[in-house]
Each structure stands twice: as C-alpha cells, then as structure tokens.
C-alpha cells in the first residue's frame, strides 16, 4: 500500500509496557516501561550495547518484543505504521533515484509537491534533480530527514543519524532537526551516544543501563540552547552517570 498525504498532524503519545527483548542468551531489554508525551523530544543515551537501538527498533515495529507491548495514542501497535518514521545511522538513499524521487518514496498522489515542500524545509530545494552520490554526507542526511518529513510523521525515531557527520555539519544538522521538530510538532525519540547532542535537542534525557532506565532527567534550558554554564553542568552530570557505569567495567 502507498500512503495518502496528510497535513502536519502534531505528535503521538507513546507508552511501553514491560518491554523485553533477548537475542539468544543475551537479554537486551528487561521489562522497560515508560511514556513519551505527545510532541516531546526525548533522547536516549547509554554506552554501546545498552539496548538503545533495540528499543528504537521495537518502537518502530521493525522487530517484535519478546514480552510487553507498545501503544501509540492509546492504540496497541505491532506492525509498521505510516505515522511513524525512522532516520537511520546511514542515509539509506536509493542511489538510482534523484533527490526528489528519494524524498517522494512511498508517497501517493501529488507526491512531487509534498516532496518538494519537505526538501525545501531542509534547504535542498535546488538539488531536487541531482543524484545522491553528488551530495555530501551532511546533505544526504538532510535528504533522509526530508524523506521522513514528507510523510508528516507523528512519531520520528532518530537512530544516531548525525553520528557519522563531522562536528560542524553535525551542529547545523542538530539545529535543523530542532527547527522542523518545533514547527511540525511531532514526537521525537533520539538515540545517541553524544551527550551534548542529547542535551542540545531533548526535553528529557533517559539513561539506559542493562536494559533498564537508570536515570530520567528533564532538561528545561531555554531553546535554542547555548553551551553556557547551565548546559555544561548538565552535560557533566550525564557524563558522570555514564562514566560511573563504565567504572564497573574498567
């Protein structure tokens, strides 16, 4: 099926109940229950292997949990849904389609107009006819963001989409993500290992440890966030959590 085009629809509330997942003998998530408020921006941090990406895959219904459930806007969710979109670590653009065709992937009806609007939102309207290989890494991720936005998602899952970008490009990309989130109002969940990025973007930072939430911190700094003293204090607090986890392993 291809999806109809909808206008911006705000954000969806997400609730998980006792989410568990194991691969073979290795348990990755252990009875995870939490709630994401509609329109909230949440970041999940934790050391690698803590289950961040698995959590995102379960929320996006790319995989089914062993136990527990995910519900979106009160409805139980077990299959891929057009109101949820994922941005991956890699851009995953189709190299044989132009930038505009990539953005319009999976849209029905007047897809060009919708794709063009989304492409304009990420500032790449002029590159619509180009092949993806002619774009830089940062531009390619912006196209991937436009592709997600074209579907007007109510829930956007971001799986370290800025992890592979250089520092300057990453800051630009963060500002862009914040801007479209603020204007479109979707619920966002960002998985990242970059604490500064989490604090720059999120209303709430969750620390995942051994498949459980070990810290849950509200960030109430005014937006757009400056890297000032308050920011630095929060950053070092979150870093200290993570490092104290590492202490057990070193």
């Amino acid at each position: 099926m291809e999806y109809d085009i909808k206008g911006p629809g705000g954000g969806a509330g997400v609730r998980t109940e006792g989410l568990s997942k194991a691969y073979g003998q290795t348990s990755v998530l252990n009875g995870l229950s939490f709630e994401l408020k509609a329109g909230e921006f949440t970041a999940v941090v934790g050391r690698s292997g803590c289950g961040k990406t698995t959590l995102l895959r379960l929320l996006g219904c790319l995989e089914a949990p062993d136990e527990g459930s995910v519900s979106v806007d009160g409805e139980p969710r077990s299959d891929l849904n057009p109101d949820t979109r994922i941005m991956f670590q890699e851009d995953r653009l189709l190299p044989w389609k132009t930038v505009l065709e990539n953005v319009g992937l999976g849209l029905a009806g007047d897809w060009r107009r919708v794709a063009m609007t989304a492409l304009g939102d990420v500032g790449l309207g002029l590159r619509q006819g180009d092949w993806p290989r002619t774009l830089s890494g940062g531009q390619r991720q912006r196209v991937a963001l436009a592709r997600a936005l074209a579907h007007s998602p109510k829930l956007l899952l971001l799986d370290e989409p800025m992890g592979a970008l250089d520092a300057l490009t990453r800051i630009g990309m963060q500002a862009l993500v914040e801007r479209v989130w603020a204007s479109r109002g979707f619920t966002a969940l960002l998985v990242t290992h970059d604490v500064a990025e989490a604090i720059t973007l999120a209303d709430r930072v969750i620390l995942l440890e051994n498949g459980r939430i070990s810290q849950d911190l509200k960030i109430s700094l005014p937006r757009p966030r400056q890297r000032d003293m308050d920011f630095a204090k929060l950053e070092s607090e979150v870093l200290n959590w993570i490092l104290s986890l590492y202490a057990g392993y070193i």
Binding site: I86, K97, G106, R147
Partner: peptide
Amino acid sequence: LNLISMARVYGLDRLALWRHV
C-alpha cells in the same frame, strides 16, 4: 538489505519494492 528494510519502513509493498529497490 538496509535499503530493503528502509523501503519497508517507508511503506513500499512487494511490487513497489521490486520496482523501486
């Protein structure tokens, strides 16, 4: 395979998956 799983997330059915990916 990453492209295929991306296309599934973006709502392509079997036929569209073959045609576009």
